[in-house]
């Protein structure tokens, strides 16, 4: 009797342990089992936000779980990245922002995170950075803008991020003009302010492309490496004789330390989402952003290289 009892107890114990551990295993294998939060580093309505919502929708179809977009605007993505760094690395929280949040701002702002605190996933598009002004501004190209600045004793400049502010300040110092940087939270607000002539010039990451051709904005210069396809007449900074350019990407990242299987699944789903016909069509044709999708390895290398450059340029300050 006692033997049978003991065996029964042992069996029961074994069974309960198996059952207790079973749900945990099942959850890990079935990621995702609950909605995923996609934090966006910029305010609603701008280019980053629109793209993020598009990716979220496509990702939702890939993973079969809702993807909730959550705008955490501020500091050029720093607010979002700080929250992302503290989030659990379980694949349920990912972030969408520009790469400068990770490879530029940590060297300018006192951020709580470092570039290697994240797992970099994929890029979605290349930004179409341009210096823009309102259609009614009294200057229409780079030279006229410089003349205007000298005449008026300076320019007001709407900036989305401390790094774009630094970038502009260096060029202004080179030209010996004064610029007053006005921090603005999203690309759309910059456009509104330059169109209303509250600001002289502003930095746009590409939302301005819908307002070209006498619809509110003029492009003074392309800030990317090359000219921007939608404003073929605006020269790049290199053509204007400055040894600077600012090529960057909208990209996705997760907190460091994602479990390998989840990471693989997430990267695959994101890649499919970012290259899906709908996303590609909407970005290329409707929003006029080139659909450049870098792999995690390419992206990580890009960020490491950029971090090293920025550390060198801004690190000693």
């Amino acid at each position: 009797m006692t033997l049978i009892k003991r065996i029964a107890v042992a069996l029961l114990a074994a069974l309960s342990i198996t059952f207790a551990s079973f749900p945990a295993l099942a959850v890990a294998g079935e990621w995702p089992t609950k909605p995923i939060t996609l934090m966006v580093g910029f305010s609603a309505g701008g280019g980053a936000d629109t793209l993020a919502r598009l990716v979220a929708k496509a990702l939702e179809e890939e993973l079969g779980q809702p993807v909730v977009v959550d705008n955490k605007a501020g500091g050029g993505g720093v607010v979002m990245a700080t929250l992302l760094q503290r989030a659990k690395a379980d694949g349920y929280t990912i972030g969408f922002t520009s790469d400068s949040t990770f490879d530029g701002l940590p060297f300018i702002v006192r951020t709580a995170y470092k570039p290697d605190d994240f797992d970099y996933l994929v890029t979605v598009t290349e930004l179409q950075n341009a210096l823009v002004t309102g259609a009614s501004a009294p200057f229409s190209n780079w030279r006229e803008m410089l003349d205007y600045a000298r005449e008026q004793g300076g320019l007001t400049f709407g900036s989305l991020s401390p790094i774009t502010a630094k970038f502009a300040e260096r060029i202004a110092a080179q030209e010996n003009i004064e610029i007053r940087t006005v921090p603005v939270k999203g690309g759309r607000q910059v456009l509104t302010d330059v169109m209303g002539r509250h600001l002289d010039v502003g930095w746009s990451a590409g939302v301005h492309q819908a307002y070209l051709n006498d619809q509110g904005v003029k492009v003074l210069a392309a800030l990317n490496d090359k000219r921007i396809a939608t404003s073929p007449d605006a020269p790049s900074l290199k053509e204007l004789g400055y040894d600077r350019s600012y090529t960057s990407y909208f990209m996705l990242a997760a907190p460091k330390g994602l479990p390998d299987d989840i990471r693989a699944r997430l990267v695959e789903a994101l890649r499919n989402a970012a290259t899906s016909k709908d996303v590609a069509d909407l970005t290329e044709n409707k929003m006029k952003f080139p659909n450049v999708v870098l792999s995690p390895e390419e992206l990580t290398r890009f960020i490491e290289k950029r971090s090293a450059l920025n550390a060198q340029e801004f690190g000693q300050e």
Binding site: R110, A165, T181
Partner: peptide, 8 residues
């Protein structure tokens, strides 16, 4: 509250 660094 941390002090600023000249951006805004």
């Amino acid at each position: 509250v941390s002090a600023g660094f000249g951006f805004g």
